[in-house]
Design a binder for these strands. Structure first.
Length: 824
RNA sequence: GCCGGGAUGGCGGAAUGGUAGACGCGACGGACUCAAAAUCCGUUGAGCUCACGCUCGUGGGGGUUCGACUCCCCCUCCCGGUACCA
């Protein structure tokens, strides 16, 4: 059995040449990228690993899988595995020991900010080049502020007072993308609240169309579900926007957006969002004022979840005003209602109950008229009809199909200057400010005289001050540091106030891979030529949970930085492979759910390699995997069997002439290598492991066979075994490599090449079917001719029994695997 | 509701339209042992059969094909995303 010395040691400190350390919050998978192609000898392989849960290592996690996929990949293209200065697998930082208070869920870049303040040397301890060890040491410099100012100068960063998502547990605001599931915090699972706060945003909405358009070429390169998720998230819809005059207040208008201008003749009322600015304006001083205020207050108190629940009955209130339908010239009652959101479109709608179920629900509850403007089919028994059909009750639109009617109605609005065709997106601007200590400070100051200004270049980066209390408490902990807050205006030199919010970690991960193309650059985020050389990333690997988070933000950053001249590419990741999540007890593994597998006992018992191998073996990496506490037994036993061959059984081999058994086992070895190579190429790691297990079984059968093992044969076979195991179980493989007398560094060994002739099967089992049912099996040479196969099949006694005296109607031959005899 | 993806033994899962269930877990039987662990050998989809074998079987129903887990149509259920988005 693999000595516990090795198992234990390698559970924590992998040997030279392959320090893959597990450091990832459970339930998430890291991103990793590598460069392939004509320059395949160079592989860039950093991993963006959000930092750990305050523990140095987390073992029982798919993270283990993540470092590996990109490792074997380049083996099959061009030059062999990259040399020391070509491979850079970045290891996440260890927890900053000097700062015990830091939020353990925060990441690497913050540490870098601090370190630059105190240490002269680059933060090598946290970002280490691991594979190879001799190359340049990437380091991260605090250049986020530079990029932020670039965004500011380009008009893509702004501060706004707005209703935002607030996580009461994290004590900070969140981006829309970070509110997941039923309105809970992506990070901690706490239900999110709405608060009105001054916050910083990046104008990702300016890029909505491009982000959508550029998904198209990624078809086939990115998983379909990620493309679809992003499409839905961006949520483009086409329609028309037009204004309606308030009948009681000539000169006052309300803008509405609709995707169905063709149904305008069916408008029987109009609705404003309760937060709509016009509401207060209209009812001020009227008898409605108090009642409206009460209603608005009640609605805004509802949680987002309650308000958006489709189960809930719609509630509204008549404002006492009417809006004039421009199509009919007639006024319709104006309501406020909870089902209309201020945050989409214009915050106001025309309501057409005949063609919209939500409006139908509201109309029936408040007894409002319903006019159909699209004729439903005869057998239609629903309520609102949203399908296609001829327009009715719509004057000049009557008889037209929906598409034509939409175009005609829109043109009608445009001709009269009443409205315009309009594209609406669901995507909203990216909220980037956070009330956390551990983040890059937003490099802005506010001067009472000159307003908001970026921190001048020579004062960058803004470093995090040392403060006593790092805990989040509703506003940035930095705000409590008077010394930090007080600064001077870059324009007038007068007293000014420093921004105290920090940036979302997703800002960092949006461009980290760019930085890794030029990690040592002290003067700029990265060199344009270097970025252009490496990017886009050929193969990116990440978790599905980042479909609309990291992967959307990174695309946005790439386009912005491309527009600003930092690099050329428009898309960051050429090909994307998304891994599933690891689940346990039916839930995504996470600290908050308390179903995390504690790694240490597994390391102690099985060693890191057996656990790693089990992760590969669990199933297809695209699927969610279910952790099974005893499943690791299998891979553990397998490794031990291989180990025993090296560490014991090999000694029993003899020098003798090769026999048929020797040739056969070599054939198996080459066949396995071919299979494993192919499996790795297509990310089918579970079948690669299965192939290795089969190979191991064959090896043991060979050693136990007559004549025992021949030394030379076994040496060759084991060398191949170890080389194939190396990417998956580096520690044990490395040890075996040395035991078997090799002096080279295993990690630097090229991936072996198989002998096509040896890998080919000599004989195969040919199946003989009668009418598609297997009736016989015959061992035949792999190169058997169709004629020979056919007559062999017909000669089979079993087949003859089915044939009787008759002749087959048809004989289908697929050499060398199958013959199907068709009778009657 | 809409969109995407699934459904294969007790379990995780294999299978360019061509031997369904590779590989592993678990279970059962056996060897070794005073005993246990570890290890090794064997069996393990269901049913029928003394046996050679036969029948059935990849969520359900149709279809295409010499042949369907695989392709097409309909349905059921499960998972994920999203949801008063006008």
């Amino acid at each position: 059995m693999v000595p516990s010395r090795i198992r234990r040691r390698y559970g924590r400190v992998p040997p030279r040449g392959d320090r893959t350390e597990v450091a990832e919050s459970l339930g998430r998978r890291a991103n990793l990228l590598c460069r392939r192609g004509s320059r395949a000898s160079q592989v860039l392989q950093p991993a963006d690993v959000p930092v750990p849960l305050g523990r140095p290592a987390h073992g029982a996690h798919p993270q283990l899988l993540l470092h590996r996929p990109a490792d074997p990949l380049p083996h099959h293209e061009g030059p062999q595995r990259a040399g020391p200065d070509g491979v850079g697998l970045l290891r996440p930082p260890r927890r900053e020991r000097r700062h015990q208070h830091r939020d353990p869920s925060e990441g690497v870049h913050r540490a870098a900010h601090r370190e630059d303040e105190t240490a002269v040397g680059p933060p090598r301890r946290r970002l280490r080049l691991v594979a190879g060890g001799g190359g340049p040491h990437p380091r991260v410099l605090p250049v986020d502020p530079v990029l932020f100012i670039q965004f500011w100068n380009a008009g893509l960063a702004y501060k706004k007072h707005a209703p935002v998502n607030w996580c009461p547990s994290c004590q900070t605001v969140l981006a829309n993308e970070q509110v997941v599931g039923d309105g809970v915090c992506e990070r901690c699972g706490t239900p999110v609240e709405k608060r009105n706060l001054d916050q910083w945003f990046f104008k990702i909405t300016d890029y909505a169309q491009r982000l959508l358009d550029d998904l198209e070429p990624l078809k086939g390169e990115w998983p379909e579900r990620v493309r679809v998720m992003q499409q839905n998230w961006i949520g483009r819809s086409e329609g028309a926007q037009f204004r309606m005059e308030i009948a009681e207040r000539p000169g006052t208008f309300v803008e509405v957006f609709t995707t169905r201008p063709d149904t305008s003749f069916g408008m029987t009322f109009a609705v404003l969002a309760p937060e709509h600015p016009l509401v207060g304006q209209l009812v001020a001083g009227t008898s409605q004022e108090a009642e409206v205020a009460e209603f608005v207050h009640r609605v805004t108190l509802q949680t987002e979840i309650d308000r958006l629940s489709t189960e809930k009955e719609k509630e509204g209130l008549f404002l006492g005003f009417h809006a004039v339908n421009p199509f009919t010239g007639k006024p319709v009652p104006l309501f406020i209602a909870d089902y209309v959101l201020m945050t989409y479109g214009t915050g106001a709608i025309m309501a057409v109950p005949g063609q919209d179920q939500r409006d139908w629900d509201f109309a029936t509850r408040y007894d409002l008229p319903i006019i159909r403007t699209v004729l439903p089919p005869d057998d239609f028994d629903g309520e609102a009809f949203t399908g296609d059909g001829p327009a009715v009750n719509s004057e000049f639109l009557d008889g037209m199909g929906v598409e034509e009617a939409v175009a005609t109605a829109t043109a009608w609005l445009e001709e009269r200057g009443l409205g315009t065709a309009k594209v609406q997106f669901r995507l909203r601007d990216w909220l980037v400010s956070r009330q956390r200590y551990w983040g890059c400070p937003i490099p802005m100051v506010t001067c009472p005289e000159h307003g908001m200004l970026p921190v001048p270049d020579d004062q960058l980066p803004v470093l995090l001050p040392d403060i006593e209390d790092y805990q989040p408490k509703g506003q940035s902990p930095l705000a409590a540091d008077a010394e930090f807050v007080a600064t001077s205006c870059p324009v007038c030199g007068g007293p000014a106030r420093r921004e105290t919010d920090t940036m979302d970690t997703f800002v960092d991960s949006s461009w980290y891979y760019m930085r890794f193309t030029d990690p040592g650059n002290p003067a700029a985020p990265f060199d344009r030529d270097k970025a252009d050389y490496w990017l886009p990333v050929d193969q990116y690997i990440g978790g599905i949970e980042h479909a609309v988070l990291h992967l959307l933000y990174a695309r946005f950053f790439t386009k912005v930085l491309s527009d600003l001249g930092f690099l050329t590419t428009q898309e960051p990741f050429q090909r994307l492979f998304t891994q599933g999540m690891l689940t346990r007890d039916g839930a995504k593994m996470s600290k908050s759910k308390g179903n995390v597998v504690a790694p240490d006992p597994y390391y102690e018992t099985y060693g890191a390699d057996a656990i790693r191998l089990y992760h590969y073996f669990l199933g297809p990496p695209t699927d969610d995997a279910v952790w099974s506490d005893d499943g690791v037994e299998g891979t553990y036993r397998f490794l031990n069997r291989v180990w025993r061959i090296v560490d014991g059984e090999a000694a029993a081999t003899v020098d003798r002439d090769p026999t048929g058994a020797d040739e056969e086992i070599l054939r198996v070895a080459h066949r396995t290598l071919k299979r494993v190579s192919g499996d790795i190429d297509r990310f089918s790691f579970n079948t690669a492991v299965a192939a290795l297990m089969e190979y191991g079984n064959a090896l043991r059968a060979y050693l136990a066979g007559p004549g025992g093992g021949r030394r030379e044969t076994l040496d060759a076979c084991m060398e191949m075994m170890i080389l194939m195991l190396a990417p998956m179980t580096p520690h044990v493989a490395h040890e075996m490599w040395e035991i078997t007398g090799h002096t080279s560094m295993l990690a630097a060994e090229p991936w072996p090449a198989w002998d096509e002739e040896l890998a080919a099967l000599e004989t195969v089992t040919m199946v003989v079917q009668v009418n598609g049912k297997v009736r016989d099996r015959v061992e035949v040479p792999a190169d058997i001719t169709e004629e020979a196969a056919g007559s062999l099949a017909l000669a089979s006694e079993r087949v003859r029994a089915y044939l009787g005296d008759g002749e087959p109607d048809r004989v289908i031959v697929r050499v060398p695997n199958l013959v199907n005899v068709v009778v009657r």
